[in-house]
């Protein structure tokens, strides 16, 4: 599968029209692209390592409840009482799936699929 490249943002050297109302990408299939050879791959990616936890168990286990305007699990238990730290922690690399700051600092329409 080909990665969904952030064309709108990456091809515009400064803030694009997209950036003026940035929206995080809805989760989709994970890119299966392989790293390029050393020398082709940007040096800054040398330190990239797989996160300890893959997937997104919290988002999979909870859904939005339009009455309370909060998230609940299948039994109706609120996310806030579950002890989960989803969307509270910066780059925890733990059990909460993707929660990196960039999602909130800046979320162009087509970031890397997460």
């Amino acid at each position: 599968m080909t990665a969904v490249l952030p064309e709108e943002f990456a091809h515009d050297p400064i803030a694009s029209h997209s950036a003026r109302f940035p929206l995080g990408q809805v989760a989709g299939p994970l890119s299966q692209d392989r790293p390029s050879p050393r020398g082709v791959r940007p040096w800054g990616l040398v330190a990239m390592r797989p996160a300890r936890a893959q997937g997104d168990p919290v988002r999979e286990a909870f859904t939005y409840d339009s009455i309370t305007q909060t998230s609940v699990d299948a039994a109706g238990r609120p996310l806030v009482t579950s002890g989960a730290t989803a969307n509270k922690v910066t780059s925890n690399d733990g059990d909460e799936g993707p929660s990196e700051d960039y999602t909130y600092d800046f979320c162009p329409d087509s970031p890397y699929p997460v």
Partner: peptide, 30 residues
């Protein structure tokens, strides 16, 4: 920008790295 990347079906992360002698010796891709 983002400290995360998805490839090979995996979410990857990179944190701040101290530059050491080995790292400075090979800056291909910079």
């Amino acid at each position: 920008g983002s400290n995360t990347l998805v490839e090979q079906g995996l979410r990857k992360l990179a944190f701040t790295q101290l530059l050491d002698r080995d790292g400075l010796a090979d800056l291909r891709g910079i």
